[in-house]
């Protein structure tokens, strides 16, 4: 296959970026999207050009490092898949792909397709934990947890923190990300002790980082590679309201 790329290139945080066109030939349908970029980058280096910088690591869809927008879709055209798991069999010979970094004021571009997501870490620092130290914990089976709750907590906890929800949201809201963490702890007895403080602090930090508010269009759920449900945002709203009233 021959694939045409229109890629966002930006030298550093301060630079003004722009699109640059590339053409990659001999692309096999078995290649992953990133293996296609690896191939292009090796060709660029050989020609003495600067390769395209993009974040990636595990290439199994779990580390959350990667994330690019392809033809306007976060992580590309498939549902429930990260950019690193996307394979070229999803595209046709001669296709043109517009490849961009996550676009959100709270995720400034570092270089090309690499963005700074430290704002997510700071939200986690504000309350994304159970305040216990190492040691002195009760036996793991001391508190039975209904399977339905444990499974629901797990579904929320599968968030990989990639930021696709923010990138695709017209308001650049991080409410699916925050909602997933809040919901995980709301479902578990371990998280209930601090539920009020947690939700208030995490929402305050989310606002301080400049993320927008949810207007219920559901783009985040549609583009989330882990298919985190919109009900996590409903839980976030409910928890926030309860915490604010008490």
């Amino acid at each position: 296959m021959q694939i045409n790329l229109k890629v966002w290139r930006q030298e550093n945080r301060q630079a003004i970026g722009g699109y640059k066109n590339y053409s990659v030939s001999d692309v096999s349908e078995h290649m992953s999207f990133f293996e296609m970029l690896d191939k292009l980058n090796n060709e660029l280096v050989r020609k003495g050009e600067d390769p395209i910088a993009f974040d990636h690591d595990c290439r199994e869809g779990i580390c959350g490092s990667c994330g690019v927008t392809i033809n306007g879709r976060a992580h590309g055209p498939l549902r429930g898949v990260t950019s690193c798991q996307l394979h070229m069999r999803s595209f046709k010979d001669g296709d043109t792909l517009v490849v961009e970094p996550w676009r959100a004021a709270s995720f400034p571009v570092i270089k090309d397709l690499v963005v700074d997501r430290k704002s997510f870490d700071r939200i986690m620092e504000s309350g994304g934990y159970v305040s216990i130290n190492t040691g002195g914990t009760p036996d793991a089976n001391a508190i039975p947890i209904p399977k339905i709750d444990a499974d629901a907590a797990f579904d929320s906890a599968t968030c990989i923190g990639c930021g696709a929800c923010v990138a695709i949201c017209k308001n650049s809201a991080a409410m699916l990300f925050v909602g997933a963490k809040v919901t995980q702890f709301t479902k578990l007895p371990q998280g209930k002790v601090e539920r009020r403080e947690r939700v208030k602090n995490m929402v305050a930090q989310m606002d301080a980082e400049g993320f927008g508010s949810c207007t219920n269009t559901g783009a985040c759920e549609a583009e989330c590679p882990k298919e985190i449900s919109l009900t996590n945002i409903a839980t976030l709203n409910k928890e926030y309201l309860k915490a604010s009233l008490c």
């Binding site: 159970v130 216990i132 039975p144 444990a150 907590a153 797990f154 906890a157 578990l188 371990q190 998280g191």
Partner: peptide, 10 residues
């Protein structure tokens, strides 16, 4: 890990 809220299978 359970005390931290790790959702192990049950």
């Amino acid at each position: 890990c359970v005390a931290q809220g790790v959702p192990f299978a049950r």
